[in-house]
Design a protein around this nucleic acid. Structure first.
Lengths: 106, 106
DNA sequence: TTGACATGCAACCAAGTGGTTGCATATTAC
DNA sequence: GTAATATGCAACCACTTGGTTGCATGTCAA
């Protein structure tokens, strides 16, 4: 629930990478998330726990495996609270411009 | 430049509050930013330095005073990289809906 | 010029963070 | 049942972080 937990969770590069990986392929097991990472399994577990406590990742047990799912809501909350505040409608303008450019490309 | 510095800078509640205060009133001096805060001046300086190194705050000297200005660009960068990615057009939809509602209120 | 004011610099310290290792537990496969 | 597999728990450790204090420097005002 706490916004602070979300910011702190996002403050670590490894954790942001785990979110990236879950974004590419959702519902991965701990084992899968450990692959190709220069870090012990326990270290990965700790990172995932922090993401879970920040509500950025939800988990579900399937037999002896633990599946990890990304939850975009807290990131959306940050957007509401921060991006909107500091950018006002600048971002919306930018997004509109981008769409315009993309439509013209076709 | 580094995105990591921005995330780390935003990970601290005190620093987010300083950004809030600068958002309300831009160009404040160190002294002003120390007012009403249960923290030594040097602690505040450290926080502001971190914000400055993350490029979230720009400073300018005026005589013996140091003025602090907020810079929304890095926050925008985060939005580009993260919000867009994880929310896709959900946020845009939301924003459109909001505008619609606001226009209907009038 | 001299004191007051605004900020800078550096050493220090407790607590938090990111990582490790060793061992325990639970589930699946043979 | 037993061995392999997947994960959990806990103690430990080095480094970072957020804070302090003391003193130095630069600038304005009388």
């Amino acid at each position: 629930m706490s916004m602070d937990a979300v910011f702190k969770a996002l403050a670590d590069e490894s954790r942001r990478q785990f979110l990236d990986r879950l974004h590419k392929k959702n519902g991965q097991t701990l084992g899968e998330l450990c692959e190709g990472i220069a870090m012990s399994r326990q270290a990965v577990t700790k990172h995932l726990t922090i993401l879970e406590e920040a509500n950025l990742v939800a988990t579900q047990k399937r037999g002896r495996e633990k599946l990890h799912f990304i939850n975009p809501v807290p990131i959306n909350d940050i957007a509401e609270r921060w991006i909107g505040k500091f950018e006002q409608n600048h971002l919306a303008t930018l997004s509109a411009l981008k769409q315009k450019l993309e439509s013209e490309e076709k």
